[in-house]
Design a protein around this nucleic acid. Sequence first.
DNA 1: GTCCCTGCAAATCCTTTGCACTCCT
DNA 2: AGGAGTGCAAAGGATTTGCAGGGAC
Lengths: 144, 144
Amino acid sequence: MKTLKYSRQRESIKKSLAARRDHPTADVVYADIREEFPSISLGTVYRNLNLLVELGEIQKMNFGDGSDHFDGRILPHYHFVCKRCRQVSDMPLGPLDEINALARRCYDGTVESHTTTFYGICDSCREKEERTEHDASSDGKNIP
Amino acid sequence: MKTLKYSRQRESIKKSLAARRDHPTADVVYADIREEFPSISLGTVYRNLNLLVELGEIQKMNFGDGSDHFDGRILPHYHFVCKRCRQVSDMPLGPLDEINALARRCYDGTVESHTTTFYGICDSCREKEERTEHDASSDGKNIP
DNA sequence: GTCCCTGCAAATCCTTTGCACTCCT
DNA sequence: AGGAGTGCAAAGGATTTGCAGGGAC
């Protein structure tokens, strides 16, 4: 078994992640940490993020946009992804244990947990679209 | 607007995907299609898979294992991922619209849909583990 | 004939890894 | 001192893309 040693870089990564409310990708974390440790390398950021995931101190998640996202909160919770701008935010929903219970009744394998991600259009994208539709319907010639 | 032209390769990809019950990655599809079109290229497979996703004829999904998976069924349904062997299977559960309804009540953004993935240990991995545990407890000296 | 689709290979993006060196304990 | 952690750069895997030729309409 490997003994864990203190590292200022790892602490900083953990702290930075805990302070944010979004779900940054590794290179956003990298940019963040570089302010405190200008010479830190992306490899170290990845190594520490994965280590923290293994320790269960942070969560890794994927929303299908090609890169992994990290989250300082470990309590199970749900996410909302905007179909337009791909922005990810937390859903104000507690853990839906009934879903697991329901699944257990229908499936003979073990069901231990689940993840749910909601999709829709966030407020700012919706406003933008409404403005555009309005412009388009106000006049036949709608090419700017 | 771009007009779509018929392509035997694309048809074959669609058919192959519809015939399977699993959730293959692009290179599994590639291997599959190569039996009918030995000279097809991986790039073409990717291009067509993405095109079919855009047309809404297949689904692309990600389970956090580093590569995208494709599914010929477009009706919303849920998946089960084995934590040990990473095998993906369908959950025998219809669409849980109540989840969207609940989410809409708690969140002021638009909620259009959701995806849920269940995690656990599949039957065959569970059996394997039970056997191992049995072996381990049967004797103090359990190093083979 | 036109324009989409293909095969091929190179390029790109994200992530992991090997190595020599540094820092914790 | 010993070994875990770091920075750097190179490797790795998955996916996309540019281009010249082939096929659908």
